[in-house]
């Protein structure tokens, strides 16, 4: 695969990251380095810690041991560091989490206006640019409740992009969608990948992984079991657990 979009600069670095929920050890010594422009797909069975891991990257969850460094800023309890990182890291959720009381346009403008202090007019222009990019500029004045699931998820992607993030995190972005809507969301994500966005994506869409991923990471039981380029990963999985997992999800 062509690797020319990947730059040398390391933007995400996890060193021996550990996390516990009470006594339950969710993340065990996670080590990961992501380069600028790299596209990573994370998969694994439910409860394997994959969502928890990417939610640690913008501090929606706090890790308890080890270091997470995003674009040179260490993620600690320091609220200033967290704010710096969140401005630069966009996130798309499984259940979209659009703000139902705001129009699509306001959903997109709110954070740029208040976090980045962009004037309203400019924020609206940016919002319309990204809404066009996700192919729903005509829905800008509607409320999220009036849109289909696929449209809502595309708005959520546009909302994140409006902050001009360098890194995008996707937490199972298509798992809550009806089958006929998955493609429209994946298409947007593929386009985004082709533009050189650094992406970490928790997903079971193996077609997407094959198409855009530079690396596929397989997690189970809170550990990274295997990490490989997609062809090697799918055609020649190394560990038994990966083989079992792949046989289960590729079954149908």
């Amino acid at each position: 695969m062509n690797q020319s979009h990947i730059k040398e600069e390391i933007v995400i670095e996890l060193n021996n990251v550990n996390k516990w929920y009470g006594d339950f050890h969710v993340l065990k010594d996670i080590n990961l380095k992501v380069k600028s422009g790299e596209r990573i797909v994370i998969c694994g069975p439910s409860g394997s810690g994959k969502s928890t891991m990417i939610r640690c990257l913008n501090r929606l969850e706090a890790h308890q041991k080890g270091d997470i460094i995003i674009e040179g800023t260490p993620l600690t309890n320091d609220i200033r560091n967290i704010e710096v990182i969140r401005k630069d890291v966009g996130m798309v959720f499984q259940h979209f989490n659009l703000f139902p009381h705001l129009s699509v346009l306001d959903n997109c403008c709110l954070a740029p206006q208040w976090v980045k202090k962009v004037p309203r007019k400019e924020a609206e222009e940016t919002a319309m640019k990204y809404l066009e990019r996700v192919k729903i500029p005509d829905q800008a004045l509607k409320y999220p409740g009036q849109l289909s699931g696929g449209q809502q998820q595309r708005v959520a992607i546009a909302r994140s992009l409006c902050m001009n993030p360098n890194i995008m995190l996707f937490d199972e972005p298509t798992s809550a969608l009806d089958p006929e809507m998955i493609k429209e969301v994946l298409d947007v994500m593929v386009e985004l990948a082709e533009e050189g966005m650094t992406m970490l994506c928790v997903t079971h869409e193996m077609g997407f992984a094959k198409k855009v991923a530079d690396r596929v990471i397989f997690m189970d039981g809170g550990e990274i079991i295997e990490e490989n380029d997609p062809h090697q990963f799918f055609d020649n999985p190394q560990s038994e657990r990966t083989q079992l997992f792949l046989s289960q999800i590729l079954h149908n």
Partner: peptide
């Protein structure tokens, strides 16, 4: 209010 609303606001960098 669902937890997702808090998380979405956090992830956008709102204080």
């Amino acid at each position: 209010i669902p937890k997702g609303q808090y998380e979405a606001a956090d992830s956008l960098g709102l204080n």
